[in-house]
């Protein structure tokens, strides 16, 4: 069992409240997943720049002068924002891969990267994880979150969701995949590698690889129904929005709500209880084996 939440804002004036709304949703899902929690938040974009989110268990030492070190390594301007065990480095898009290689070599864990996406995830109760990162104060256009009750891999930062396997793309999952090792090998043959032993990361890599091959988000999500075996309710985030798909058996719960202000997703209705205007929202359960997505 895990908990998933997602929120896509239709109105720009609500952006400053995104973190606050998502945090309440995330904390409500604690009893579906008390092991770890994570959030991907899609915020501001700077032209030609990319954000790389990294994690370290020893942030004081690892993040001290990291911006200067990366700047020297890639010969480009770098700014850093340290948030507890995570740091977000902003640098020119042209040096992104070079910077990621340097950061990995330094032993930092890459959470994700993209023009607008930042990922924060840690082991612990969702309320504690949210407080450590100050999630309430984060603004943005949309975000997805996850509370984890581990089944397929260890309770570690790298095992926590969301998983990002391409710029501005991430995935959260409730369920378990049974053909993830086979799919991991298939993807590796194509040169697509994952960073953890986790089943969901393979799902994320599958979607990213389909998009890289030219599929639309909708087509990539359709593909999960055919190519991934197991139980899943997936919510995937992209720069422009988010998508939802459930396996044909659909035993993992999912509920959606839509108003003029937002589209919200959650594992259970409880997570919507504090959303503004929820009493008048259109609330429905996504159909099995059916792809839904919202993009701006």
């Amino acid at each position: 069992m895990c908990g998933i939440v997602g929120l896509f804002l239709k109105k720009d004036e609500l952006r400053p409240q995104l973190g606050d709304m998502l945090t309440d949703m995330l904390i409500t899902m604690t009893d579906r997943g008390p092991d770890s929690a994570g959030i991907a938040i899609y915020g501001e974009e700077a032209d030609g720049m990319v954000k790389i989110t990294v994690q370290s268990d020893t942030p004081d030492a690892a993040f001290a002068d990291l911006d200067a070190a990366v700047c020297a390594a890639v010969d480009a301007p770098v700014t850093i924002k340290v948030v507890d065990t995570h740091a977000v480095l902003t640098l020119p898009e042209a040096v992104e891969q070079e910077a990621i290689a340097y950061l990995e070599e330094k032993g930092l864990r890459i959470m994700g990267s993209g023009a607008t996406m930042e990922i924060y995830k840690e082991v612990g109760l969702p309320k504690d994880v949210a407080a450590r990162f100050g999630l309430r104060d984060m603004g943005g256009s949309h975000g997805i979150g996850h509370t984890r009750m581990a089944t397929e891999s260890a309770v570690t930062t790298m095992g926590a969701h969301p998983f990002s396997t391409a710029d501005d793309q991430c995935l959260v999952h409730n369920g378990s995949l049974s053909n993830h090792n086979q799919m991991r090998r298939k993807l590796a043959k194509k040169g697509v590698f994952t960073r953890s032993e986790n089943d969901t990361e393979v799902g994320a890599a599958y979607i990213s690889s389909r998009i890289a091959d030219g599929a639309t988000l909708g087509e990539a999500l359709e593909g999960t129904i055919k190519d991934l075996d197991g139980f899943f309710t997936f919510v995937t985030g992209t720069k422009n929005g988010f998508g939802v798909v459930r396996d044909p058996i659909a035993c993992k719960p999912a509920v959606m709500a839509e108003t003029d202000d937002y589209v919200a997703f959650a594992s259970e209705y409880r997570a919507f209880a504090d959303l503004p205007g929820i009493e008048a929202a259109r609330v429905w359960e996504p159909e099995p084996a059916t792809v839904y997505f919202w993009e701006r």
């Binding site: 259970e268 209705y269 409880r270 997570a271 919507f272 209880a273």
Partner: peptide, 8 residues
């Protein structure tokens, strides 16, 4: 019962 808030 008012304010059920999706309780189990």
């Amino acid at each position: 019962i008012i304010n059920p808030r999706g309780s189990h």
